[in-house]
Simulated assay, not measured.
Amino acid sequence: MAHQDSDINTIGLQTSSANQLAEKLNTLLANYQIFYMNVRGYHWNVKGPQFFELHAKFEEFYTDLLTKIDEVAERILTLGHQPLHAYSDYGRISTIEEDKNVAGGEDCVRSVVKGYQVLIELQREILSLASDADDEGTASQASDYIREQEKTLWMLNAYLG
């Protein structure tokens, strides 16, 4: 039986909780989009003795980021909201800043580390909010991303020594 209560959305969550989660997810989406373009830039522009290794690794990262961008946008839609889709909005709310003219291998890797750290921190906030709202879908998504990206950070930090 469907809820008639206007405080409950179509997937059974409190509307106020869904609104708060959608706003946080749009912030996450903005950070993913800026980070995605940064990693594309590292892929295109990396130079140095680790070129072949890093060029391939950055492609792996940005391909994964693109998948997650789509999944985050779809989760926002599932919550009954609209995902941001303009780079002017992304630039305004992202805490990850555009990274221009980075070409040194280690500098690129350090920037990737910083980007993943920002994403993980945001996803932990979202996980906490989603858990409080009994939003298993968003909590599960955030938890999966955190687990994967923590492992990626461990490997990147091992690479940097």
Rank of each mutant, 00 (worst) to 15 (best):
D134R: 12
I69P: 05
M155W: 11
F61I: 14
S111G: 15
E53V: 07
E136C: 00
A73C: 11
G91K: 04
E121M: 09
D132L: 04
I11Y: 05
I34Q: 05
D99M: 14
E136V: 11
I76S: 06
Y116P: 04
A142V: 01
Q123D: 06
W44H: 08
S111R: 14
L127H: 14
N9Y: 09
Q141F: 05
D89R: 10
N45T: 07
K57Y: 08
S128E: 14
A142I: 04
A18V: 01
Q123T: 05
S94G: 08
L156F: 03
T95H: 10
D134Q: 13
L156Y: 04
G104P: 06
N26W: 03
T67R: 14
L122I: 09
I120W: 08
I146C: 01
E98T: 13
F58H: 03
D70W: 13
E23T: 10
R124C: 07
Q82P: 00
K47P: 01
K151R: 13
A73W: 15
D5P: 08
S143R: 00
L54Y: 12
E71C: 07
V113D: 03
Q117G: 04
D107K: 14
Q141A: 03
T67Y: 15
Q20H: 03
I76H: 08
Y90P: 05
L21V: 03
V112L: 13
Y42V: 13
T15G: 01
S6W: 12
K57E: 06
K114M: 07
K114P: 02
E136A: 06
N19A: 03
L54P: 05
P49E: 15
L77C: 09
S140F: 00
Y62W: 07
H81E: 11
L160P: 02
L65P: 09
W154M: 11
L156T: 05
T138M: 00
G105C: 12
Y145Q: 14
E53A: 06
L21Y: 01
G105E: 06
